[in-house]
């Protein structure tokens, strides 16, 4: 157990962190932002997310909620923002290579990918 009181400003709602990890917050904000930009309606988002959450292996505690959120985001972005699954896969690999080439403690930048042009 982490002592939440020692971490000032940590997001929590009645003792519970709002996001378990930073990427959850990023994924959350991307969906909210794209909706705000009119890339998709909130109904379209709710439908896409519902379909992901409906899978049988959804974790009973809801702890994997943002994993489904992320999968829904990847899907809706492919349809609505013209970012294909291949683009997403390629870019993910670039980030992984960039991370591996970045000394620990330094900011990971895409240009650190040894295969970057």
């Amino acid at each position: 157990m982490i002592d939440l009181d020692k971490l000032r400003g940590i997001p929590q709602a009645e003792g519970e962190p709002v996001f378990a990890e930073p990427w959850e917050a990023q994924a959350f904000a991307m969906a909210v932002s794209l909706n705000k930009q009119g890339m998709f309606t909130w109904n379209e988002w709710a439908d896409t997310l519902s379909a992901k959450l409906a899978v049988e292996d959804a974790n009973k505690s809801g702890a994997d909620y943002y994993m489904h959120w992320l999968a829904a985001l990847e899907e809706i972005v492919a349809v609505k923002c013209n970012v294909t699954p291949q683009d997403q896969e390629d870019r993910k690999d670039q980030w992984l290579r960039a991370a591996a080439a970045t000394p620990h403690g330094q900011t990971i930048l895409l240009k650190n990918d040894p295969q970057a042009c």
Partner: peptide, 21 residues
């Protein structure tokens, strides 16, 4: 060297692509 989780890399991929566009 740094290590990114697969999930973290997926989120960064989406964000960087969407920012570029």
């Amino acid at each position: 060297h740094s290590h990114l989780s697969d999930t973290d890399a997926r989120v960064r991929a989406l964000e960087s692509l969407l920012v570029e566009k």
